[in-house]
């Protein structure tokens, strides 16, 4: 329900999954390996917009 505002905090937590492109837009992989779970959960925690949801 919250819109990503491209703050890029998630990029620090899970650089393999999230990426800010040259236009300041966030890009992310659609699916993450289980080994990335802790990093993605950390990304959820630090997103100021609380815009990241983990869908199993």
């Amino acid at each position: 329900m919250y819109q990503c505002q491209n703050y890029g905090q998630c990029v620090f937590e899970a650089p393999n999954i999230f990426h800010l492109n040259d236009d300041d837009k966030l890009e992310h992989l659609a699916e993450a390996d289980e080994s990335e779970r802790a990093n993605v959960e950390n990304a959820v925690d630090v997103c100021p917009m609380q815009a990241i949801r983990i869908v199993e």
Binding site: N6, Y7, G8, L20
Partner: peptide
């Protein structure tokens, strides 16, 4: 102000 990736 307004900038995002540029701050990194």
């Amino acid at each position: 102000v307004g900038l995002k990736a540029a701050l990194l």
